[in-house]
């Protein structure tokens, strides 16, 4: 698992690659929380290269969404593969976190 960070003005894009499971979800949380600076106004998490996520990883996404919500920073997800999309649907997270088909759509909405 690896998190790559890009800044598009004040929108932070975090690209997650590989697998997030119970063995590396703490590292995922550290990398993601560590990447989000003070002056960010929106966060887009690009899951296009994410092959696998379990409940341990969804827990981190929810934690980050809660932290950002308290700071009035918007959060969205994009480019989910079919299996990853279905995990977000089963969890009901697709109803509480905005999901876009592509990073371009997510950036347009965040900008």
């Amino acid at each position: 698992m690896n998190v790559q960070v890009e800044n598009h003005d004040k929108v932070l894009v975090a690209k997650v690659e590989g697998r997030v499971d119970s063995s590396n979800s703490q590292d995922f949380e550290r990398q993601l929380q560590g990447a989000i600076g003070e002056d960010v106004k929106a966060v887009v998490i690009d899951l296009g290269q994410l092959a696998y996520i379990s409940s341990a990883g969804l827990r981190v996404v929810l934690l980050v969404a809660k932290t950002l919500g308290q700071r009035n920073v918007s959060i969205s997800l994009c480019a989910l593969s079919d299996p990853v999309q279905s995990v977000f649907e089963i969890s009901g997270f697709n109803r509480i976190i905005q999901i876009y088909d592509s990073q371009a759509d997510a950036l347009a909405a965040a900008g």
Binding site: S55, L58, R59, A65, G69
Partner: peptide, 11 residues
């Protein structure tokens, strides 16, 4: 909602 959603219980 996101603020009230409990962490865990999903597995």
């Amino acid at each position: 909602a996101v603020e009230e959603r409990q962490i865990g219980g999903l597995g």
